[in-house]
Design a protein around this nucleic acid. Structure first.
Length: 271
DNA sequence: CTCAGATCCTGTGCGC
DNA sequence: TGCGCACAGGATCTGA
């Protein structure tokens, strides 16, 4: 479900409601998601206060007084908050009960998500220490992109979605960024010119910022922690528009498969 | 090292 | 209405 803008939106929503609140109870309704759930949390988290929540790549980091939780939503994970103990929904796997009757639940039909404990400093965590730069940071710039693509024969879209080079860009925003930069998704990464690397970096930053400003993209089941949708779907130019006319040149958009993921592009605008 | 493909899992939507 | 199949926001592992 979530790429960087959606995770960022969730992070902001969780922070606004839960920072400073104390855990009363933790319940697991399943043994494992992608990895076993840390069962000791049901004993160690109660009475701890939630100090901060941060995002790194598509991970959410929950800083408690004495514990650090690392969460990833996978393809279909979501967090939602209720201020009363309402009935569980199908695929609710974890519940954190905070004081003042706030119920935080993790729901994930496909269970590709992850909730594990981590130690500080997080830079040494095996899940995080091989990640590339944040796309909205100055470290992700055209010089970096140019250098990192020189030896890569793989399609530029695969490069963009590989979190070793830049994090947070998934199948939706990779397609949108390449359209905006007018670069064909199948172009071997090493063939991009310096100015195309600049255009691509600019496009990624612009698209992600716009998507964050609109609260992410709600296709089907993504929603904010309060259940409201994101509004970037209306701004999508190519994702899911195969066969429809290009907003720029009116030609029919085409579809190809790259790294097993369907990819829509304009054969006229993108080269 | 690089890269393409398979894999984990459930739900949905389509054609027949 | 029901069945089987393709496909869905991601990350990681395998093997060529």
């Amino acid at each position: 479900m979530p790429e960087l803008p959606e995770v960022e939106t969730i992070c902001q929503g969780l922070k606004a409601t839960l920072i400073g609140k104390k855990i009363k109870k933790v319940r697991f309704f399943r043994e494992n998601l992608r990895e076993p759930l840390p069962h000791e949390l049901t004993k160690t988290l109660p009475s701890q206060t939630l100090i901060d929540i941060k995002r790194r790549a598509k991970y959410l980091l929950f800083y408690f007084e004495h514990s650090l939780l690392l969460c990833h939503l996978g393809m279909s994970g979501s967090f939602y908050i209720k201020s009363a103990n309402e009935p569980l929904k199908k695929h609710d796997h974890v519940e954190f009960v905070f004081n003042e009757n706030f119920y935080l639940r993790y729901n994930d039909p496909r269970r590709f998500g992850l909730i594990i404990t981590a130690n500080t400093p997080i830079d040494e965590n095996p899940k995080l220490n091989k990640l590339g730069p944040e796309p909205l940071s100055p470290t992700f710039n055209s010089d970096f992109a140019f250098k990192q693509t020189r030896t890569k024969q793989t399609a530029i879209k695969s490069w963009l979605m590989n979190n070793h080079y830049v994090v947070g860009v998934g199948n939706i925003y990779a397609q949108e960024s390449l359209f905006l930069a007018e670069i064909h998704p199948n172009r071997p990464a090493k063939t991009l010119t310096n100015s195309q690397c600049q255009a691509l970096v600019n496009a990624v930053k612009k698209i992600l910022k716009q998507a964050i400003a609109k609260g992410g993209t709600t296709l089907k089941d993504f929603s904010h922690t309060d259940g409201k949708p994101g509004y970037f779907k209306q701004a999508l130019k190519v994702y899911g528009r195969t066969g429809l006319p290009c907003f720029s040149c009116n030609q029919r958009l085409e579809k190809t498969i790259i790294a097993g993921r369907s990819t829509c592009y304009c054969p006229s605008c993108q080269n």
